[in-house]
């Protein structure tokens, strides 16, 4: 895998999750949460723009072309980021898993042999710590809440759980970049991640899911049925009015 492809993959992760989070604005449990979701979405959108900007410097296309002119098959985000998570419990479950991953992954990426990636990671890491604090608080609130919220939170965690494995499974082509010290070794992050997630689940009186199923394919452009409809909505304006400005 080229450095360019790796940078675009990380950019796609951030963009797709940012788009999913932004869909909560106006639909959250209350106004403050609308703002929190939208602000978190902005952090991910900002991260995507930094990564796409770097991809352009590496000889890629511009940020709008990455975001708006590619079909689902060309997106290389991991599957966990594209899940609709239209139930708030699902959104909280997914967010805890990815925020806990982000904090560990970005911390390592700060030491990347690639100075640009290291710079972007240092910026994003500060935000990720804050995101994780918020995700953990929601998990505890819902998990250790009412009988109904506990049940739904447990079910949501089990529904999302099988998507976490891909976070720790580098595609074969990534391994060269890991050896050069450009990308962190994802697999090595899993024990620490599991410990952190388990501690939060414990505090939230939730069980660690026992599900042993897992799916992957995102980095190879093989997606769930959910990505294409999301892109259709996200890209509609740009594709209908190419080059439009306001």
């Amino acid at each position: 895998m080229s450095l360019l492809a790796a940078v675009v993959g990380l950019g796609d992760d951030a963009l797709v999750l940012g788009q999913r989070l932004s869909a909560w604005c106006g639909k959250s449990p209350w106004l403050e949460e609308d703002l929190a979701m939208a602000n978190t979405a902005l952090d991910f959108l900002g991260r995507a723009r930094l990564l796409y900007g770097y991809a352009e410097q590496l000889g890629g296309c511009d940020e709008d072309a990455y975001a708006f002119q590619r079909d689902a098959r060309a997106f290389t985000n991991l599957l966990i980021y594209e899940l609709p998570c239209a139930d708030f419990a699902l959104a909280c479950a997914r967010q805890l898993l990815v925020d806990a991953f982000d904090v560990l992954h970005l911390e390592k990426l700060c030491d990347s042999a690639d100075a640009n990636l290291a710079g972007i990671a240092a910026k994003a890491h500060k935000e990720a710590r804050y995101h994780r604090r918020r995700s953990a608080a929601w998990l505890v609130r819902l998990g250790d809440g009412t009988a109904e919220s506990h049940c739904r939170m447990q079910k949501a965690m089990e529904d999302v759980w099988g998507y976490h494995a891909e976070l720790f499974a580098p595609v074969e082509a990534e391994i060269g970049l890991v050896e050069k010290g450009v990308l962190p070794d994802r697999a090595a992050l899993r024990p620490q991640w599991l410990a952190a997630v388990s501690a939060t689940l414990d505090e939230a009186t939730l069980e660690l899911p026992s599900a042993d199923w897992q799916v992957d394919g995102g980095r190879r452009g093989l997606h769930t049925e959910h990505l294409a409809p999301m892109l259709a909505e996200m890209q509609h304006l740009h594709r209908s009015h190419p080059g439009a400005r306001w």
Partner: peptide, 26 residues
């Protein structure tokens, strides 16, 4: 009250003494 307020850089608080809501620059 909330980890985010009107902008990403602020959180939303409430004062228990004077009951005023306010933003905190995080």
């Amino acid at each position: 009250v909330s980890e985010f307020a009107s902008t990403a850089c602020k959180a939303h608080y409430r004062c228990r003494t004077c009951l005023e809501p306010f933003d905190h620059f995080k």
